[in-house]
Design a protein around this nucleic acid. Structure first.
Lengths: 342, 342
DNA sequence: ATATTAATTTTACGCGCGTAAAAAAATAAT
DNA sequence: ATTATTTTTTTACGCGCGTAAAATTAATAT
């Protein structure tokens, strides 16, 4: 960082530090692998001279790089952006070098990214798969080469482990709350949800309703892709046109659908909320970053962002170190966030 | 892609293709640099055998890599996620290898990312700086080493070029529309906006008001950071507590602030919109992906996402090729999106 | 002080490719 | 057919580092 002559390579840097290159090399691979006094000397030189090892030369012969790929299905969804940020930070803290990718909702792109990822020789990959549309065979092939931890959305038995939310519990928790505080909810979801979590959520709803002795009512709406708000909005309009919701309480499969439902309600002049002059209650699931700011603010189930990302990275680190163990599925419970929409 | 024996390196691949390694190397650097018949032969082999050049070995000795860094200030903001997606795709189309980074609103992280980016020897960088809090000196230093195109938010005279929106025009357009259709607006913004575009927008408002002969009223609210919705919400509440808005029309500096204002209005029981029983109109700027789904849907100014990203990448390609020209500032006009909030 | 152990240096090789220069071959122009 | 031109091959070197083995030195234990 100074005005000293520029260091060209590790040889030179080792020389000005009064050490040999292999020792310096060892330091850069793992600072703790050299004697404390040596380490101090290197780090002092590092302050004095401006040198960074050439990462291309480093990774060329390394058995294992420190690269980690983070792949999410749709980065323009603030939920994934937020969890990606979390995961990214923890990777850095764990000494990895994360790179962020998004499949943009396209299964082919998902596979393409994995392929280009392979050429980066990553130590591991954290992947939230697209879900239903994911090309399982290709992902499986990838998992055979690179330690991969799935998160958010599970593909059964794939990868080293899965870390996500207990989506069944999400819906059960919310359904119970809604039953306790008003009319039992109907369940609002996409007919062919792109994400397998949706199935768990439906099941949680069905279980809760049965246990509480209410008749479950599931509304399945059309729509494809990741424009959930629009799908929810159009779906709700269709429901309004065909007799309305079967209950004055609507539990949506996720927050983004719920946001669309709120918009439809507004457009239809239907008041949403828990106060006296509202005629319908709407709840979501995920605690989307903007759920707090809808009108009315959306009652929802909060994911344990931090616990999930921290555990996912923890497990990945183990996978990278070559630990062998049976496929693990770790699920975190959600928390009820009560707001004014339900 | 077949069951042929695995190719270990370019030497082997050249051999099975019946060519010499330097020729194959040339192909990978630029497929058009070899004879058409040779190219066909290589591409046929590529289908037959499974070979990808080792990118670390490639980039080690290359004067210029094909890597491009894309840096945005805050990826959890869907606006930036969306524009990043656009830019990313166009980089790929242009033959680059983009990598996405987010400063997460932290000026120090912004600089750190640039530093770690340098070790990737990128051909170029597309950067939307944090704005006011950006550490100009460090960014300037970076721009001296790597061809950098700024977008969205300008830092005067920095980098090869700037590509963004004509923010003055944004506010002028909206102010004119609002004046034409109802009470002249007041302007709602953060006291110390993190983004210099905010200043342009204020100026556009002031200009428009002056030209139309109305007295401008600017409301500056407290708040720091990137949680614009919350800042807008709290700011609006404060306004309500201290006598209310000076006009029944509120032009917000951006959509996320506007979303917060809408929430505050809801919480206060103030009806927003253009219909008869609404008492206040609220408008934003940016056409945030969720602006369509607020209640009421937000009237706003749409950025030319695609034009901006396509032009930015175009200019970057020129910069990479070493074209020299004076610092250019290209601004795109916004389009008025009329919805129900104003 | 001696033996033991751990850390470091020396020496040496290889990774997979870029790239430059000269020679050879293929193509195009005359 | 001859010449000029372009493309390809040959040959050869180097990039910056990882890494392995043996020799040396330093730290720790006895």
């Amino acid at each position: 960082m100074s005005n000293s002559p520029k260091i060209r390579n590790m040889e030179e840097f080792a020389s000005v530090s009064g050490l040999s290159r292999p020792t310096v090399s060892k330091y850069f691979n793992d600072p703790d692998s050299v004697r404390a006094s040596t380490r101090a000397r290197i780090e002092q030189s590092l302050e004095e001279y401006d040198y960074t090892p050439n990462i291309y030369a480093m990774n060329q012969n390394r058995k294992l790089t420190k690269n980690v790929g983070i792949l999410v299905p749709y980065l323009a969804d603030p939920f994934f952006a937020e969890i990606a940020r979390n995961v990214e930070q923890r990777c850095i803290d764990a000494g990895f070098r994360p790179t962020l990718y998004s499949s943009h909702g396209d299964p082919n792109l998902e596979v393409e990214i994995l392929e280009s990822l392979r050429s980066l020789k990553p130590a591991g990959v954290l992947m939230a798969p697209l879900g239903r549309s994911s090309i399982r065979g290709e992902i499986e092939k990838f998992c055979n080469y690179v330690p991969t931890v799935l998160f958010d959305s599970n593909i059964p038995d794939l990868g080293f482990a899965f870390v996500g939310s207990n989506n069944t519990q999400f819906s059960m928790l919310m359904a119970e709350y809604l039953c306790r505080t008003g009319e039992p909810p109907c369940f609002f979801e996409m007919q062919f949800p792109s994400n397998p979590n949706a199935n768990k959520r439906r099941q949680g709803y069905l279980d809760a309703m049965e246990r509480l002795g209410h008749e479950p009512k599931v509304i399945k709406i059309e729509g494809d892709g990741w424009a959930f708000e629009e799908i929810g909005r159009l779906g709700a309009h269709k429901v309004f046109e065909t007799g309305g919701f079967p209950s004055s309480t609507v539990l949506c499969s996720n927050d983004r659908l719920a946001i669309g439902v709120l918009t439809a309600c507004w457009e239809k002049g239907v008041r949403v909320g828990i106060d006296s002059n509202a005629s319908i209650r709407v709840a979501g699931q995920d605690d989307h970053p903007l759920a707090r700011y809808t009108c009315p603010p959306l009652t929802t189930i909060a994911q344990e962002y931090e616990a999930i990302s921290s555990y996912a990275v923890e497990v990945l680190a183990k996978a990278v170190e070559g630990e062998k163990k049976p496929h693990e599925s770790k699920l975190f419970e959600g928390k009820l966030i009560m707001r004014d929409s339900a």
